[in-house]
Amino acid sequence: MAASDEALVAAFVNGDGGAFDELVRRHSRRVYGICLRYFGNAADAEDAAQETFVAVLRRASTFNGASAFSTWLYRVATNACNDIARKRARRPRNAGTDVAQLADVADPDDVLANRELRLELRTALQSLEPEQRDAVILHDVTGLPYADIADRLGVAVGTVKSRIHRGHARLAGALTHLRDLEGDPAAEPTDAIAPPTVQP
């Protein structure tokens, strides 16, 4: 049986360099994904992903196991993104060619229709208030930074953050409700939903 992330961290802290290698192998793509969503461009995302794992290398001994390693790593990654953005004194932006990799942002509904999402997530998203749903889709599904969403929606960045975090909270509640209805928390459809319905 493969060792858990938490066991690997413990092994690394006790001197097993190979355990760290395995953690990197398991999580590098996800960390890159977190950073790409934050910055919206590959160059900054790669820098931030590297800084994330450097931070893990240095701070592994501070991981106390209260939450899952993957949760701790998520937080380390967003921290690294914020640090880089602050140090460079520029807002994270979507840059040139990378924008083309993103889904069409013309309409959040289109974005949602074009993305592969778990069925339960799609259902939960549809249950959100429109303002929250648009902000969540633009941020989480499309990968736009806060500032771009604020520009697009014509509201303050703080308002965007509030809508996103409250939207996440509503989503978490809706997912719990859906799973309760299904009666099996482990039954998570993971396949892509039907082909996109592209608006003309």
Partner: peptide
Amino acid sequence: MAAMLVALGNLDRA
């Protein structure tokens, strides 16, 4: 919450 955000953004598929 962290797992949901990963799934929502398809972050493992980047």
